[in-house]
C-alpha cells in the first residue's frame, strides 16, 4: 500500500464537493449575519443613552468571552430542554454569525471612532438629521479603512466552520472524516481539505483586498 494513492483522491471528491458547498454556504451566510448585526451592535453602542450602550457592551463582552463551541452546544442541545427546537443548520449559522458579529462590532467601532470629531460638528452646524449624518457622512468614512480587518474575520470564520461538525452538520472536514472511516484511509481526503481551505483563504484575502482598494478609491480616502 503506497503512502499516496490517486484513486482515493477521485473517490473522495464527491464527498468533499458536497462538504465544500456546505462550508462555503455556512461561511457566506454567517458572515452576512456578522456584518449586518455587527454594525447594528456598534451603532447601539454609540447610543447617547448610557444604559443602552453599557448593556450592549456587556453583551458583546459576554459573547466574546465564552467559546463558540459552547454557544453552539447551548443553542442546539440545551435549547430543546426549554422547548426551543432549532434545526442544526439554523442554530449553527446563527451562532457563528452572532459570535463573529461581536468581533465585527469592535472593528466597526474602531472605524467610527476614527472619524474626526469635526465631521460630527459640521453635520450639527449644517443641521443634518441623525440618520442622514450616519448614513452619508460618518459610515462612508468609517467603513472603507476597516475592510481589511473585517476581511480577516471573514477568513478566520471560514477556518472555524469545522466546529459545525459538532452538531452534525456535514461540512467539508466532517465529510473527509466520514470518507476516511468508511475506507480506512484518511491521508488523501484530509490533505485535500487542507488544500481547499488554503486556496479558498487566499482567494478570499485577494477579494477583500480589491474591495478595500475599490472602496477607498470610491470615497477618496487614503
Amino acid at each position: 500500500m503506497s503512502k499516496w494513492d490517486w484513486s482515493y483522491v477521485w473517490e473522495a471528491l464527491p464527498y468533499l464537493y458536497r462538504g465544500a458547498i456546505v462550508t462555503v454556504q455556512a461561511t457566506v451566510l454567517s458572515f452576512a449575519i456578522a456584518l449586518v448585526l455587527g454594525l447594528i451592535i456598534a451603532l447601539i453602542r454609540q447610543s447617547p443613552n448610557r444604559y443602552v450602550s453599557t448593556a450592549m457592551t456587556e453583551v458583546v463582552e459576554f459573547i466574546r468571552s465564552t467559546p463558540l463551541l459552547l454557544q453552539v452546544f447551548f443553542v442546539y442541545f440545551v435549547g430543546p430542554q426549554f422547548g426551543i427546537l432549532i434545526p442544526a443548520w439554523t442554530a449553527g449559522i446563527s451562532m457563528l454569525g452572532i459570535h463573529y458579529a461581536a468581533y465585527c462590532s469592535e472593528v466597526y467601532r474602531a472605524g467610527i471612532l476614527a472619524v474626526e470629531e469635526g465631521q460630527w460638528e459640521a453635520c450639527t452646524a449644517l443641521n443634518l438629521s441623525r440618520i442622514r449624518t450616519w448614513r452619508t457622512i460618518i459610515l462612508p468614512q468609517a467603513i472603507p479603512p476597516i475592510v481589511p480587518a473585517l476581511g480577516n474575520y471573514f477568513v478566520g470564520m471560514f477556518k472555524e466552520t469545522p466546529i459545525l461538525a459538532a452538531i452534525a452538520i456535514l461540512e467539508m472536514l466532517q465529510q473527509a472524516k466520514i470518507f476516511g472511516a468508511n475506507n480506512y484511509r484518511y491521508t488523501e481526503a484530509i490533505v485535500m481539505v487542507g488544500f481547499f481551505f488554503l486556496v479558498f483563504s487566499l482567494a478570499a484575502s485577494a477579494i477583500v483586498q480589491s474591495v478595500s482598494i475599490w472602496l477607498n478609491r470610491r470615497y477618496r480616502l487614503q
Binding site: E116, G118, Q119, E121, A122, A125, L126, N127, L128, S129, R132, T136, I137, P140, Q141, Y219, R220, L221
Partner: peptide, 29 residues
C-alpha cells in the same frame, strides 16, 4: 437653521466633491 458656522480646520466632507459638499445639507435638510 438660522446659524451657519465655518471652522478652523474646515471640516469638509472628504468623500464628497466641493459641489457635493455644498449640496448635501440643502438637499437632505
Amino acid at each position: 437653521s438660522k446659524i451657519g458656522m465655518v471652522f478652523q480646520h474646515f471640516n469638509l466632507f472628504p468623500h464628497m466633491t466641493a459641489l457635493q459638499n455644498c449640496m448635501e445639507a440643502p438637499v437632505s435638510v
